[in-house]
Design a protein around this nucleic acid. Structure first.
Lengths: 202, 202
DNA sequence: TCGCGAACTCTACGACCGATGAATTAGGCT
DNA sequence: AGCCTAATTCATCGGTCGTAGAGTTCGCGA
């Protein structure tokens, strides 16, 4: 009775079996980057959330910046989504984008990833670079290619600006009444703007 | 010749005359908050930029958060600007807002203040609160009152989202080609969106 | 079975941060 | 002239951060 299986003193050494620790760290990092942004997230805090020593995070990912780059990703697969949204009736493309945006924002996990992107881009220059190249190569360029209209780059930028602004105002700062508007209404309201940015004369 | 006015050993004690130090600190703080955001700005760095000991910053402003609150302000006077923009031909109100936005973004000092607002709102929760109340009381509410249309709160939020998004994409992250678009073109492109958000059926 | 490498923890270093308290100097009121 | 207050620096405290290094435990291929 001297040692009644105490609260796990966490001895060193490898864990038996597939510990899934790496995935736990990634999940904790994603959550913390989304909730607090890059600067306020700490490797120690991420390690604590993952139930792990901080040095292990460094061991796996090398540095905080590399951890961010490894963990941040788009909440969807653009190579699947973009063709699907662009195809079909051209007059409805704005509404399709708006509907898709709202669906991403409604899913907690997808929203967290998008928030991590936006918040990090606003703070750390290195993270902003990572985000810019990620978005440029994976979203803007395919979109430009798929659209096949003039000024496609500018159009993609405008589309992105409205999306980023909505995320900031609605989910980061939380300004009412925008933050409380139901998704269907948001689609209605946003669709014409996105439609103009994507297809109508500028 | 023993002391040839050496590189200013910076002795303690009050400086003779009107030193203007407080204003220098405010300017340095504004610049640093705009350039790096709240988290990455340090009182020590601000003090260094102002040519002053870090303790003096704390002496004047009490804490970093209070310094931010004291220094962050809108780059314009809403009580003067909003009536001016809303008055006049209702069909041009979107263009007037767009023109004003671009003029703010073209002025280095005004842009810095706006950037400080947006970047801080993205990172620190306390700063986000300060920004939200500032914007809500000084901009959104007067604008809602001046507009006199239905759904005015939602309209103001949408307007703000497009502005914030543009600032983020064009000036914080710097996505091309949007970042390089000349002001006049930006006005053209933005005006119809803002017009719809402000006056047309949603 | 043996041994290498990967998964882990512990410890600690060096840097920086925000804040405090005491000491010094000047302005301004009486 | 004398004194209170404000402006200013210096020294330092307690805390946190990212990261490196050394040691421990386990999985797995030879």
């Amino acid at each position: 009775m001297s040692r009644p299986t105490a609260p796990a003193p966490a001895r060193p050494g490898r864990r038996p079996g597939d510990s899934g620790t790496r995935a736990a760290i990634e999940a904790a990092a994603r959550a913390q980057f989304a909730a607090r942004g890059y600067e306020r997230s700490t490797m120690r805090g991420i390690a604590r959330d993952a139930g792990v020593d901080a040095a292990l995070v460094a061991h796996f990912f090398g540095s905080k910046e590399r951890l961010f780059a490894a963990v941040v990703e788009l909440p969807f697969d653009p190579s699947e989504v973009i063709p699907r949204l662009v195809a079909g009736e051209r007059a409805d493309v704005g509404r399709r984008f708006a509907t898709f945006l709202v669906s991403v924002l409604d899913d907690a996990d997808a929203r967290a990833r998008l928030l991590a992107l936006v918040r990090a881009a606003a703070t750390e220059p290195g993270a902003a670079d990572a985000v810019r190249t990620l978005v440029t190569t994976r979203v803007v360029e395919p979109l430009v290619a798929a659209l096949g209209v003039s000024d496609a780059g500018l159009r993609a930028g405008l589309l992105g600006s409205q999306i980023v602004g909505l995320v900031m105002v609605r989910h980061v700062v939380g300004v009412e009444p925008l933050a409380g508007v139901p998704g269907e209404r948001l689609v209605e309201v946003l669709a014409p703007t996105l439609q103009r940015y994507l297809t109508e004369p500028l």
